[in-house]
């Protein structure tokens, strides 16, 4: 009886299981194998042991460059985006006539922010002859192309990421709605002002949601590809040469699938470590109302 029940259960989730084994686990294991080989897609893979990993850590300067760029990007883009998302969420949490209209209005552009079309638009706005460049020229700063200068290209991409606050904002908004009104009323009675309420009520009550957004944001940002590919192609002077872009170039530019697989696994491990660190540190700042963990 028990096994029969279990079987029925597995049968119900079988669409997921089949998809998982065929489309996720199998390719993952395959790429793990390829990461120890020389593989150009056309000739059969040749086992080379840890050569790919050795090369990465000893003689490949581009690996370090792209890793550095990606870390810089994550460190700046993720907090900026979260702060921005939280700010907007709090503004949209006010009780006001036509609020749902404003929410749509603000949410809408940011969900398409990750698309190719917006990246192309961004390229034209921030390019050498774009709107921003022309605007700066009014103030005597001529010939500035924010995405064609290695000093400013990465910050421009960070800005674009912050502008895609939409989904994080929605999650924050839902979190804000969950915070009991009584807590604010009680703190008002105790004489807390706006700022005090934010730090003593809103932030602690929202901390699980912040953690969730933080982890998701970090995972996504480590894999940043579209904007770097479309807007800057990794340039100028590799200042925006994201890790995912390097991986793509190795895989589909020079057909070094083995090396690219190794790069992918290193990235997975890095993301894994970042996530573990996040969870570990979260004990000290995330507050669960149910008191389960604390």
């Amino acid at each position: 009886m028990k096994t029969r029940q279990n079987l029925t259960g597995y049968l119900f989730i079988s669409p997921f299981l089949i998809g998982f084994f065929l489309l996720t686990l199998f390719p993952m294991m395959q790429s793990l194998y390829f990461s120890f080989t020389d593989y150009s897609l056309l000739q059969p893979a040749q086992w080379v042991g840890t050569k790919n990993y050795m090369r990465m850590f000893t003689s490949d300067p581009t690996f370090k460059t792209s890793l550095g760029v990606t870390f810089t990007y994550v460190i700046f883009a993720v907090p900026l985006k979260l702060m921005f998302a939280l700010l907007v969420a709090m503004l949209l949490n006010k009780n006001m006539k036509g609020m749902s209209f404003y929410r749509t209005l603000i949410y809408f552009p940011s969900i398409i922010g990750g698309s190719i079309a917006v990246a192309v638009l961004w390229k034209n706005i921030f390019g050498i002859d774009g709107f921003i460049s022309k605007f700066l020229a009014i103030f005597g700063m001529e010939g500035i192309g924010l995405v064609s200068n290695p000093d400013t290209a990465l910050s421009t991409l960070v800005l674009l990421q912050a502008w895609q606050f939409g989904s994080a904002m929605i999650i924050f908004l839902a979190g804000l709605k969950q915070i009991p009104k009584e807590l604010y009323e009680a703190s008002s009675v105790d004489g807390a002002g706006m700022i005090r309420k934010f730090f003593s009520v809103t932030l602690p009550m929202l901390s699980p949601v912040i953690l969730f957004n933080l982890i998701l944001g970090i995972i996504n940002s480590f894999q940043m590809f579209t904007q770097a590919y479309v807007i800057t192609k990794g340039g100028p002077v590799k200042s925006t040469y994201m890790y995912a872009l390097y991986l793509y170039d190795k895989a589909f530019g020079s057909f070094q699938m083995g090396y690219a697989s190794a790069l992918a696994w290193v990235m997975l491990i890095i993301i894994g470590i970042a996530t573990i660190i996040n969870f570990t540190v979260s004990k000290y700042w995330v507050f669960y109302e149910s008191g389960g963990d604390k």
Partner: peptide, 11 residues
Amino acid sequence: TLVASITACSG
């Protein structure tokens, strides 16, 4: 799976 599907979605 969760980690893999999150990591896979952007690629």
